[in-house]
C-alpha cells in the first residue's frame, strides 16, 4: 500500500486485487447463481456509463476524424479519408503553431515544475516546527480554480499590474512596464510561470509521499559511513524516488499537453497565435467553428501524443521493475 511502485494504476492492480472469494465449494454452489446476477447488477451502471461516455466518444473521435462531420448540419457526415490530417499539417498554420506552442509549454513546465516540487517537498519534509503550515500554504493554489487563478494573474500581468510594479521596485525604477499578455514573446512565458505557480503544490505532495517511503535506517547507515547531505541525497533519496519521479513526469507531461483553460481565459490563443495550443485549437475548430470532423482529428493527434508518453512510461517502469 505504501510503496509508490505503480506509476500507472495498471501496474498495481494485479498485485492487490486478488480474487477475494475463495470460499468453500458448498457455498460457491449455493450462492453462485445468486452472486453472479448480483455482481452483474452492481457492475452494470458504472460499465454502461463508461461505455456511453468514454468508449463511444473515443471511437467517435477516431471515426469522425476521417469525415467532414459538422456539429449542426442537415447532411450526414461524409468519409474524406486522411483529408483532415493532411489539412492540419499542410494547410492550417495555426495548427502547426499550436503543436509547437504545446511542445514548448511542456518542455519548460515539465522539468521546472517537477524540480521545484521536489525542492519544496524536501524543504517541508525537514523535522522543523511549522512544516505542516507551509505544506498547507503551498497547496492552496491547487485547490483554487484555474479559472480564478487565470483571472487574478491577468490583472497582475497588466502594464500597471503587480508583476511590473514588483520588478520596478527591485530594480530601483529601472524597469519599463510590459503588457505581458499582449506581447507575442512574453505571453507564453507568462502563462508558463502562472501554471507552475498553480500546480507545483500538487506535485510537492506526491514527491513528499515518495520521500516518506524511504526508510530512515538507510539515512542512518549513510551517515554512519560519513556521507554528507548531498551524498545522502545522491545515494539514498534519489534512487528511492525513481518510481515517484516517473509518475510525476508523466502526469505533468499529460497535463501540460492538455493546456486549455489558461489560454481561454487569458489570451484566446493570441497575440498572433503565440499562445494557441492543441486543445485550444481543437475546441476552436471543432466546437466554435463547428467543424466536428476536423476538431476530432486534432483531438486524435493530441491523444496519440498522450499514448506516446504513456508508452515511454511503460517502457521505463518495466526496465527497472
Amino acid at each position: 500500500m505504501t510503496t509508490p511502485r505503480a506509476v500507472e494504476p495498471a501496474v498495481g492492480v494485479t498485485a492487490t486485487t486478488s480474487p477475494a472469494t475463495t470460499k468453500p465449494s458448498f457455498l460457491r454452489r449455493r450462492g453462485g447463481r445468486h452472486g453472479k446476477s448480483a455482481a452483474y447488477a452492481m457492475v452494470a451502471p458504472a460499465t454502461i456509463l463508461l461505455f456511453l461516455f468514454l468508449v463511444v466518444p473515443v471511437l467517435l473521435a477516431v471515426g469522425l476524424s476521417f469525415t467532414n462531420a459538422r456539429l449542426i448540419s442537415p447532411n450526414p457526415p461524409r468519409f474524406v479519408g486522411l483529408d483532415n490530417f493532411i489539412r492540419a499539417f499542410t494547410a492550417d498554420p495555426t495548427f502547426v503553431r499550436s503543436l509547437i506552442n504545446t511542445f514548448l509549454f511542456a518542455v519548460v513546465v515539465v522539468p521546472v515544475q517537477a524540480g521545484l516540487g521536489l525542492l519544496m517537498a524536501i524543504l517541508v519534509n525537514q523535522k522543523l516546527r511549522g512544516t505542516t503550515f507551509f505544506r498547507i500554504v503551498y497547496f492552496i493554489p491547487v485547490v483554487t480554480s484555474i479559472v480564478v487563478v487565470s483571472i487574478l494573474w491577468r490583472f497582475m500581468y497588466q502594464p500597471d499590474g503587480m508583476v511590473n510594479s514588483f520588478i520596478d521596485t527591485i530594480t530601483f525604477g529601472a524597469w519599463e512596464s510590459i503588457a505581458w499578455l499582449n506581447n507575442p514573446s512574453t505571453a507564453l512565458p507568462a502563462i508558463i510561470v502562472m501554471s507552475i505557480w498553480q500546480a507545483v503544490g500538487f506535485h510537492m505532495i506526491i514527491w513528499l509521499s515518495g520521500l516518506q517511503t524511504i526508510p530512515e535506517e538507510l539515512y542512518e547507515a549513510a551517515r554512519m559511513d560519513g556521507a554528507d547531505a548531498w551524498q545522502q541525497f545522491k545515494s539514498v533519496t534519489w534512487p528511492g524516488l525513481r518510481p515517484t519521479m516517473i509518475f510525476i513526469l508523466v502526469t505533468i507531461t499529460i497535463a501540460a499537453l492538455g493546456l486549455f483553460v489558461q489560454i481561454d481565459v487569458m489570451t484566446q490563443g493570441g497575440p498572433v497565435d503565440s499562445t494557441t495550443t492543441l486543445v485550444y485549437h481543437a475546441v476552436r475548430r471543432g466546437y466554435r467553428e463547428q467543424q466536428t470532423g476536423y476538431g476530432a482529428a486534432i483531438s486524435l493527434i493530441f491523444f496519440i501524443l498522450v499514448l506516446l508518453v504513456a508508452t515511454i512510461q511503460r517502457y521505463l517502469t518495466r526496465d527497472k521493475d
Binding site: V13, L54, P57, L60, T292, G295, S299
Partner: peptide, 25 residues
C-alpha cells in the same frame, strides 16, 4: 472488465470533449 476499466484511465477528457459534444447532441 477490470482491465478494460483500468485501460480507459489513459484517455484524457480533452481528447473526447469535441466528439462528445457531437455525441450528446
Amino acid at each position: 472488465v477490470l482491465s478494460l476499466i483500468i485501460a480507459t484511465l489513459i484517455v484524457p477528457f480533452e481528447t473526447i470533449a469535441v466528439p462528445m459534444v457531437y455525441w450528446v447532441s
